[in-house]
């Protein structure tokens, strides 16, 4: 088998290559990729973004959604370049504004599954205002924040989730700003499904993304990832495999975390993985909009 390293086919089918259909039917991950887009992706070798993309595709496959009913909206940054690779309705917007664009799209098409894909800086720095308001409204958008604690696309500046003391190209003396606990932020703002996992525990991500899409309201999945090209190099965290191993070592399941004593919980520095919050009472925003139009059209009180 070793010598049969097959020439991967170009996705735009041409005869000398292996046509996609016969080789890939076994892998769910590949079904939703775009036929007329050049591969491989632009991301660095080993980047967690591609892993999240695979997880998102599997989640959509498991939900049995048709490609037409899915819309992906992204901002600017490495994560923002994800939607173009998939055969859905894809909207690559401006830095930080994915959720604001997605709000208009969801209201226009409440029947569609609208999924926003953002990086940590994209969602929490420039996009922070839209993040908390989309959660406050509980509008039916699934937001996936790929948290690699750095601005990767622009070369390694610190972001709202870069840990204190760590190096970045704009924190040569070590970052002095505390991080956003984005899951708690989303919960406090009103999100009705919040879960966190890492790109190492990708099958957990599959599960949480699937649940988040199925949830009728504002859902957040924090996918903790890494950037070995900028953040890893600046802080000597090593290669992609080494940073992947750190994700495994430095994370703990919610169940295990809850068994810790209060003191050890307080001192915990590991990433807590799990479904952190679910609220099934709150009604989804576009449903409230529809009620309002029905009330207005029925001559209800202005």
């Amino acid at each position: 088998m070793a010598e049969h390293i097959l020439d991967a086919h170009e996705l735009d089918v041409d005869e000398i290559r292996i046509p996609r259909e016969n080789w890939f039917e076994s892998s769910e991950t590949l079904q939703k990729l775009r036929k007329n887009k050049k591969f491989p992706t632009i991301w660095c070798a080993g980047c967690g973004n591609g892993i999240v993309m695979g997880s998102l595709i599997r989640a959509i496959e498991h939900l049995g959604l048709s490609n037409d009913e899915v819309a992906l909206v992204s901002g600017i940054g490495c994560a923002g370049r994800m939607p173009v690779y998939m055969d859905f309705n894809t909207l690559h917007t401006n830095h930080g504004r994915a959720l604001a664009f997605a709000t208009g799209l969801k209201i226009a098409r409440p029947d569609m599954k609208v999924i926003a894909i953002m990086g940590d800086g994209d969602a929490l720095a420039i996009g922070g205002n839209h993040f908390i308001h989309a959660a406050r409204r509980n509008i039916g958008i699934t937001s996936i924040v790929i948290n690699n604690a750095i601005y990767g696309m622009t070369g390694g500046q610190y972001s709202p989730t870069t840990p204190i003391g760590k190096q970045a190209t704009t924190a040569p003396y070590g970052n002095i700003e505390p991080s956003f606990p984005l899951c708690e932020l989303a919960i406090a703002a009103g999100a009705t499904y919040v879960a966190r996992s890492t790109v190492y525990h990708v099958l957990e991500l599959d599960k949480y993304i699937e649940a988040a899409i199925r949830k009728d309201g504002f859902s957040l999945v924090e996918a903790v990832s890494y950037c070995h090209t900028t953040y890893g190099r600046l802080n000597k965290f090593g290669t992609a495999p080494e940073m992947m191993r750190d994700l495994k070592k430095n994370s703990i399941s919610k169940a295990a975390y809850e068994k810790l004593s209060a003191k050890r919980q307080a001192g915990n520095s590991k990433i807590v993985r799990g479904v952190l919050h679910v609220n099934d009472e709150r009604e989804e925003f576009t449903k409230l909009c529809r009620k309002l139009t029905e009330q207005a059209q029925g001559g209800g009180r202005q």
């Binding site: 080789w23 491989p40 591609g50 892993i51």
Partner: peptide, 11 residues
């Protein structure tokens, strides 16, 4: 194949 960032491996 679930962790390959480039979906370059199929099992």
């Amino acid at each position: 194949d679930t962790h390959c960032p480039d979906m370059a491996i199929v099992v």
